[in-house]
């Protein structure tokens, strides 16, 4: 055998000390098990006495990510609403990974949850997972992001009305720049919902003769990349009057670029989302307005839809939640701001 040639590298070269090591590793295993046990003890006792009454139905939720406060707020709202309605919610995070989300849905199926709510990590890839849940007879709902696979059955989709939100942002922009001038859009066309926002914005702005959209450039949906895009736009258009950014991080990037260029006040910024930092910027007059999304309403409504479904009521296949404009007057009365 080859092993004879290389005696020093046989994988079983350890001998006498192994018992101690085994003990050590064994102890570690016990500690790990105890740690998990501690985690489980916080929950209800696993042994429930048999009764005719079925246990609390569980709703499995897989959110896109929990790193973004938007989804955290949505998840918390689901938790609260479910508790009020006698459901238990399990919230998992797909961490933006479609394969991870697939695993979570499989776990939900083998756990036999009553219903599943998803924020798809990928609108196409999620289709196979939803089909599997369909086959297992578990109703699936989507929140915030839609499934685009036509062969998958989704009971109901609950999301922001992004098109109307874009229109609202356009109205704020018209007001901000006094009905005439040049505006730019910081875009992120990779995302379906963002396309709806810019379409809504353009529809309203396009009807105003004295306003022209001079640029529509991708800003990556993030503050640092939007900052660079805004710098380029400001450089090219010294007479720019306003910037519509498709989300608040992009808007804050634009604000930073305007500040750096020393054109604060001359270029008005309208964002989308309603994140705390953007609200603060509106209060300080750095941003004009933002088209507010309500993740809490999305969360609450998705649980409501699940409850309605099980009560045998009609559930609309799509519910769009309108955005609201948030301006300086709102910020001044907002107790959550400094």
């Amino acid at each position: 055998m080859q092993g004879a040639k290389f005696p020093a590298i046989r994988p079983d070269r350890f001998g006498s000390r192994e018992v101690k090591h085994m003990r050590r590793i064994g102890i570690l295993g016990v500690i790990a098990a105890l740690a998990l046990g501690a985690v489980s003890c916080g929950k209800e006792k696993p042994h429930v006495a048999a009764s005719q009454k079925p246990a609390t139905p569980v709703i499995g939720v897989s959110l896109l990510t929990l790193a973004n406060p938007f989804f955290k707020v949505m998840g918390d709202a689901m938790q609260a609403e479910a508790k009020a309605r006698g459901y238990e919610v399990v919230i998992t995070s797909a961490d933006m990974d479609p394969a991870r989300q697939k695993d979570q849905v499989k776990d939900f199926i083998s756990k036999k949850v009553a219903a599943i709510i998803l924020c798809p990590a990928d609108s196409r890839s999620v289709g196979t997972s939803i089909q599997e849940a369909n086959q297992a007879g578990i109703p699936v709902f989507t929140a915030d992001i839609a499934c685009l696979d036509k062969s998958a059955r989704v009971v109901s989709h609950i999301a922001t009305d992004n098109f109307a939100g874009g229109k609202l942002a356009a109205e704020a922009m018209i007001e901000a720049i006094g009905g005439k001038g040049k505006v730019a859009i910081i875009d992120h066309p990779e995302v379906e919902s963002v396309i709806l926002r810019t379409n809504g914005f353009r529809e309203v702005i396009g009807k105003v003769k004295d306003i022209s959209v001079v640029a529509q450039l991708p800003g990556g949906g993030m503050r640092d990349s939007a900052f660079k895009t805004a710098q380029d736009i400001l450089e090219k258009h010294p007479d720019l009057d306003g910037i519509f950014a498709i989300n608040d991080p992009s808007a804050l990037g634009a604000v930073a670029a305007i500040e750096k260029a020393g054109r604060m006040g001359r270029v008005k910024v309208v964002g989308f989302d309603g994140q705390p930092e953007a609200k603060q910027a509106i209060k300080e007059g750095k941003m004009y307005a933002t088209s507010m999304q309500y993740p809490d309403k999305i969360g609450k409504l998705s649980i409501e839809s699940v409850a309605k479904y099980f009560a045998g009521e009609q559930v609309p296949s799509e519910t769009l939640i309108p955005t609201g404009l948030y301006k300086k007057a709102d910020a001044e009365q907002d107790p959550s701001l400094k």
């Binding site: 001998g15 006498s16 192994e18 090591h21 085994m22």
Partner: peptide, 21 residues
């Protein structure tokens, strides 16, 4: 002691897996 000739980790990791299960 040379008789169970094996890696400590190779012996105890399956044990941990079993405990977890």
């Amino acid at each position: 002691m040379r008789t169970p000739k094996a890696f400590p980790a190779a012996v105890s990791m399956p044990a941990i897996l079993f405990l977890l299960c």
